[in-house]
Design a protein around this nucleic acid. Structure first.
Lengths: 148, 148
DNA sequence: AATTATCAGTTGACTAGTCAAGTGATAGAG
DNA sequence: CTCTATCACTTGACTAGTCAACTGATAATT
């Protein structure tokens, strides 16, 4: 391995380029439903766990409280979600409009996402990849910064 | 596989969470050098290919022309790069300040990046992962959107 | 009951990016 | 020699996010 690259750093580069590219294409794809990738992710998360509050939602999306606050303002303005001031938190739920869009967009997006993998890797390879990535991801959750 | 998930979509989710988390930790890590991940990436790219113009740089980073323009304005303001109006394009190069920061930050960042992988996967597994991800990434470059 | 924590959410100032319309200089066609 | 393309870059309006300081309401302490 040279001074400038390691196997890990090469994997990293590919990973970043791939996720970037897919994110971009997903945005393109979801345009037909009037959604962005970020909005879609948020709506799916809400649909799965509604009713839930903003803190819960933020942690599920690995986004900060401030970030979710801004996102929800936009989604509410566009009529996709409702927020009711509950006991002490704001409970979030989907509007019928969002349910309707998701009923169409979700299966389409699932198929699109999946095609990236099914078109290049065998089922066996996908299982291997899933296992490796799962270990990486889990590890990254426990990892802390090296001291200065 | 259920109606709600496919192997591909599960891999995707892990991938996104992992790259997110790493990106975030890298930001944290690079703070000690006064750099963000995005800035670091741009500077490394410039160092490798300088002198180069903005279009070339943008394509190497999979970012739009507009995006690179804004980024370079910030980097120039902070004294990391210089842009000279050349024959018909602006040629970008690093300032001594940036060279000095990179001389420290690059090896550190390489080691940090690499540790994510070395701490979880064997060399054999990393090779497998690299191969699978490379195929995915290459495929994503050729893939086009399904028609409406 | 009055005071102070604590907790959920918001907001200001910022980075980083997108798209699409707009500059400004150079190069080629009439 | 002027006119028009073209090319590199910039900019306006926007999404999406960060951090840290700030509200506002409820809960806990003296």
């Amino acid at each position: 391995m040279s001074d400038y690259h390691t196997l890990g750093s090469l994997i990293w580069l590919r990973l970043v380029r791939f996720t970037n590219r897919s994110h971009h294409m997903t945005n393109e794809f979801l345009k037909r439903f009037g959604l962005t990738t970020a909005q879609f992710d948020v709506l799916v998360q809400i649909r799965t766990f509604q009713p839930l509050n903003q803190l819960e939602l933020a942690s599920k999306l690995t986004v900060t409280e401030g970030g979710i606050s801004r996102m929800l303002v936009r989604l509410e303005k566009d009529g996709y979600i409702e927020r009711k001031q509950g006991w002490k938190t704001k409970m979030i739920s989907l509007t019928p409009q969002a349910e309707a869009v998701l009923a169409e967009a979700f299966p389409a997006q699932l198929a699109f996402q999946t095609s990236f993998f099914d078109e290049t890797l065998t089922e066996e390879e996908q299982k291997t990849l899933y296992e490796l990535v799962t270990r990486l991801q889990k590890h990254s959750l426990n990892k802390s910064l090296p001291r200065e």
